[in-house]
Design a protein around this nucleic acid. Structure first.
Lengths: 219, 219
DNA sequence: CTAGTAATCAATTATTCGCTTGAATACTAG
DNA sequence: CTAGTATTCAAGCGAATAATTGATTACTAG
């Protein structure tokens, strides 16, 4: 009778529980950029390989990611774009109802975020007019796995020394891993310092892709 | 630096962890019908009062519900409609990626679900044409807290004895607490047995309300 | 066949979580 | 002021979780 509901709720709980750990959210954040091997994920997140492996298995058991072995490595990937949506919903209600978020965001971002970010729709419009340089500041590994069509890859850590690659007469819109990814904040701040007109894209690459907009990958 | 991201992820994890327990999902399911006191929730879920209270405080700490004292009782309510959306996203990706769900649903519902459910849009269309009786089979307590405008309340357990209240010449669309709430399945099965033309609304009252459609409450 | 690499498994320990129990608090009605 | 009701608090215990460590499996390159 009501037994069915509880069996289903148990499944929902397993999925929610899988999302209930910082390290697993972190792993999902990286996987949302593109597939990766265990070793790469462990290095990106700073976890030991064994620990990362266990967390990844947890996520797989919950159905949030899938894996397949190719050659020596096991590659993990998000089970689907809807997982990005679920993470977005989690972020959204947390932002909305947890006061702590405001405090954290205000403390670290506000100084930089004074100029409002650009939405996806706006980026599309402005880039159709051809007046804008779209800048991807993620590491090139992630850029190669997938990026916004026409974007220029210039990882944050190389930004200083490769500044001359950027046209100074065009507006620059920077993006990275997601709405709270610090890379694009830093990039915009640095670019403004150098006299560029720079803005941040409101969200990151995973949200762009999940919304069904076209993407481009380097072979 | 990347410290900010982890502080934020910790907040997301707290919210996800709050969703990661059957009893708390159950409590949210009832709260999605309307506000309730601790005692009522404990009775509805079958938990001890102390246990229910602790789970509710957990949910409140996570920001998913709010509470206020009125008279002797403490009433809890969802923090916002977006919580229904988050639960929907959780349900959606679980359905999509966890094979176990298919098994459970197939085993219990398939026999009954042979006839496809009606969507919200369809219900609106048909009820505008005035050819349909909308039936709310939840307990009257929940009906009174809020229901679809024009719906008739006939709790499942009274259905047999109050069958004569239903016009036999109109199609009946039944709904209850949510997509997996068994009440409406049972009701449709029972009504068909008696010769009525009955269908199930695809989702329940919380989803209806969260989508911004008008609702009605009994004073 | 051997060495080396990538990942998982298994065992251990510290920590957190969930539930029960009984006491404590807060309030209301009389 | 007292009795009764609704809820929370606090302590305690067993179960589940997370991280570490070292061993093991599976595969590839030479």
């Amino acid at each position: 009778m009501t037994d069915v509901k509880h069996q289903l709720f148990e499944q929902f709980a397993i999925v929610a529980k899988a999302l209930g750990h910082v390290h697993r959210l972190d792993l999902l954040d990286y996987l949302a950029q593109g597939e990766r091997g265990v070793d790469g994920l462990a290095r990106a997140t700073g976890l030991s390989v064994a620990n990362a492996s266990q967390h990844l298995q947890n996520l797989r058991r919950a159905g949030l990611i899938t894996s397949q072995k190719r050659g020596l490595q096991v590659f993990y990937q998000l089970a689907g774009e809807d997982v990005v949506g679920l993470l977005g919903a989690l972020r959204h209600t947390t932002e909305r109802h947890v006061a702590e978020v405001d405090r954290i965001v205000a403390g670290y971002f506000n100084a930089r975020d004074s100029l409002e970010p650009v939405s996806r729709a706006e980026l599309l419009k402005r880039s159709h007019e051809g007046l804008v340089t779209v800048l991807d500041v993620r590491p090139s590994e992630e850029f190669q796995a997938g990026h916004i069509p026409g974007a220029v890859n210039l990882p944050l850590k190389d930004l200083e020394k490769r500044l001359k690659d950027l046209p100074k007469d065009q507006e620059i819109i920077a993006y990275c891993r997601g709405p709270y990814c610090v890379l694009s904040f830093e990039a915009v701040a640095a670019l403004r310092n150098k006299g560029y007109t720079a803005h941040r894209l409101e969200e990151g690459y995973p949200e762009w892709r999940a919304s069904g907009l076209p993407v481009e990958a380097t072979k």
